[in-house]
């Protein structure tokens, strides 16, 4: 993790925080190797996350269309 932190213009603590968020989302894994914490991307999970977000977007697009239809029912002057 200290090696990872060296790549970014942010503090070690900040990098740690980002990794923790990614880990909680299940997108990276942390493994201990000796005294070092190794961080690796979980590519399968990343693909799953991408797919899930794409589908979730579809759901919200459908919701938007339904909202638009409901709004169209109401004559403007009464709003």
């Amino acid at each position: 993790m200290s090696g990872l932190a060296a790549f970014y213009a942010m503090s070690f603590a900040a990098v740690q925080k980002h990794v923790a968020v990614l880990e909680r989302a299940g997108l990276v894994r942390k493994d201990k190797r000796g005294r070092e914490q190794m961080v690796s991307a979980d590519h399968e999970r990343l693909a799953l996350a991408r797919q899930a977000l794409d589908r979730y977007e579809e759901i919200w697009r459908e919701r938007s269309l339904r909202m638009d239809r409901i709004l169209a029912e109401t004559p403007r002057e009464t709003t």
Partner: peptide, 29 residues
């Protein structure tokens, strides 16, 4: 089109979707 933009943040698992409607603020609320 109702949806004017849609941004997917993979890291934050966040979807941000922007809609524009032909209706007033109170009606949309």
């Amino acid at each position: 089109m109702t949806v004017v933009s849609s941004v997917k943040d993979l890291e934050a698992l966040t979807l941000t979707i922007v809609n524009e409607f032909d209706a007033g603020v109170d009606r949309v609320w």
